[in-house]
């Protein structure tokens, strides 16, 4: 087997450990400290933000407009699909116009 094959397998095994590991470590504790609990409750916002922020910073007007549109629709109560399609529409349209 090629080295590519073994890199994939090693990466897959270690990735699985990251997905099971957090729970395995935490489940060793009888009680979770309230501060840890509060930190974990911040995980969705904290982690998912890091997947958006650098892309937003690197983006031009079309990308920023798409993200602002998405945030606005969300604040107005729009669902995931609405946000997704309208923002993508804004992005594609502006990229056509702005080049």
């Amino acid at each position: 087997m090629s080295s590519t094959f073994w890199i994939i397998i090693a990466g897959a095994v270690l990735t699985y450990f990251t997905r099971a590991g957090g729970h395995l470590v935490l489940s060793r504790f009888e009680r979770i400290h309230p501060r840890v609990e509060a930190g974990l409750n911040a995980v969705p916002a904290a982690v998912l933000t890091t997947l958006v922020a650098p892309a937003a910073m690197e983006g031009g007007p079309a990308e920023i407009a798409a993200l602002v549109t998405g945030a606005a629709i969300s604040l107005l109560g729009g669902g995931m699909m609405t946000i997704f399609f309208v923002s993508a529409g804004v992005l594609i349209a502006l990229r056509q116009v702005l080049g």
Partner: peptide, 11 residues
């Protein structure tokens, strides 16, 4: 990024 933004907003 658009999709992840929608997820961030949902929290």
């Amino acid at each position: 990024p658009i999709y992840f933004l929608a997820l961030v907003m949902s929290f």
